[in-house]
Structures are given as structure tokens and as C-alpha cells.
């Protein structure tokens, strides 16, 4: 299992209901079911991966984040996970809204476009950055909505989501020492991982009064 998947798994309480969007070969949901007794299900767009996962006894639907989340009822899950996919969906804000409609928590990971190497590349070469994470040219990349950690924070603020935990890690998934400073994380973190929840009605009321 990838290190970032292990970090995600650590955020999930045992025995809960989990939906993993972009579940790939089903590694995470398999792990959650077998070691944490979760009711873990997946959605995956790549048919070969779906067949592989179902053939290994895992409940996976062929589908995608943009089209299929609307068909789940409110609060159907305790956690809805979106691994390394937010930048590739058609409507990231809508996908997040759906995630936090059908789930009590959302766990989102994405590659941080604010990493210093990307900033430096664009500054020095004046061209779209390319590296191991961002490895396809601009005209055929699936990553149509790249964002930085600070961009994502701003969106959460705007949408009224509470950030329960966050991590910024390097590509290998090692947790980094800049964990207390968002600005440093935005500069040095290659992958970002967020655990979000909706504001409670009480919190919404308080926010309304302070405004």
C-alpha cells in the first residue's frame, strides 16, 4: 500500500462506512475492510481496475466523481475519500460539495501545485512545469484543475468546511517537519492530505453572528 494511502487509513475510524472515489485496484478499501472492519466501497473510472477489484471480492462501481456522487443519499457514509484526483475532476467544488453531502467527513489528497520546484521551473523557464508528479504536457494532462494548498484552504473557507486534520508530505509520503506552517507546507509539500467535515448547525450560526 502506498504511504499516502496508509496515512488516509489512519484517519479512518474502525467499523465505519467508507466510499473511496478513484479506488484503483481496491488496495485501500481492501485494507479498510480486512483490518478495520469498515464497510468500504469504491468508485473507479478505469474498467480494468474495477474488474480487478471486484474479482478480488471488493465492492467497486464503475463510475466517476463528477457523474456518480449525486446518486448517493445524504449521509450515506462516514468518510468519503478522494485520492490524488481532485485536480483531475471536471468540477472540483461540486465534487467536494457532493462528498460532504453524502459523507460526514471528506478525506482529500492532491498534488500541491505550490511546491517550490514547480514555482522555480515556471519562473526560470516560463513554461508549464514538468516533473515526476506533473509528468504530462499541458495539452494532454488529465490534471485540468491544479491547485496549491493555500488555494484549497481558501476554498474550504469559502464553502464553510472545517479542517479537522491536514498533512503535507513529500512524494514518498513521509510526513514533513513543516506541518505547523501552512506557508511552508505550501512551499515544501508535494502532496497534501486533508480531513474535512461540514460545519455543524451551531457552528454555522456562530459564524453568521460574527459576520
Amino acid at each position: 500500500m502506498r504511504l499516502d494511502q496508509r496515512l488516509i487509513a489512519e484517519m479512518i475510524a474502525p467499523g465505519t462506512r467508507v466510499l473511496d472515489i478513484g479506488s484503483g485496484d481496491g488496495t485501500l478499501i481492501g485494507h479498510l475492510f480486512r483490518t478495520r472492519q469498515c464497510d468500504a466501497r469504491g468508485i473507479e473510472i478505469d474498467m480494468r481496475e474495477v474488474t480487478h477489484a471486484v474479482a478480488h471480492g471488493l465492492p467497486v462501481m464503475h463510475g466517476d466523481a463528477d457523474q456518480d456522487l449525486v446518486h448517493y443519499p445524504d449521509d450515506a457514509f462516514d468518510y468519503v475519500v478522494l485520492q490524488r484526483t481532485l485536480q483531475a475532476v471536471e468540477k472540483p467544488r461540486e465534487v467536494l460539495r457532493q462528498m460532504l453531502r453524502i459523507g460526514r467527513h471528506a478525506i482529500v489528497s492532491f498534488p500541491n501545485f505550490g511546491h517550490w520546484r514547480l514555482r522555480l521551473q515556471i519562473l526560470l523557464s516560463g513554461r508549464m512545469p514538468m516533473n515526476t508528479v506533473w509528468h504530462t504536457p499541458w495539452y494532454e494532462t488529465p490534471n485540468i484543475h491544479p491547485c496549491t494548498i493555500r488555494d484549497f484552504l481558501a476554498l474550504c473557507e469559502e464553502e464553510g468546511y472545517v479542517i479537522e486534520r491536514w498533512l503535507a508530505v513529500d512524494e514518498a509520503g513521509d510526513r514533513a517537519p513543516w506541518r505547523r506552517s501552512i506557508r511552508l507546507a505550501n512551499l515544501f509539500g508535494e502532496q497534501a492530505l486533508f480531513l474535512l467535515r461540514r460545519k455543524t448547525t451551531a457552528e454555522q450560526g456562530r459564524a453568521g453572528r460574527t459576520r
Partner: peptide, 21 residues
């Protein structure tokens, strides 16, 4: 089949859905 799968999702049912090539 997709129509059916989505209806089952709306009902909260545990459903796998595979389209075989």
C-alpha cells in the same frame, strides 16, 4: 445496468458494477 446501479446507490445498497469488454 448503470441506471439500475445508480438506483441501488440511491437506496444505499452495497453494489459493484462491472462493464466487461
Amino acid at each position: 445496468s448503470r441506471l439500475l446501479a445508480r438506483a441501488l446507490n440511491r437506496a444505499g445498497v452495497n453494489v459493484s458494477f462491472v462493464e466487461i469488454e
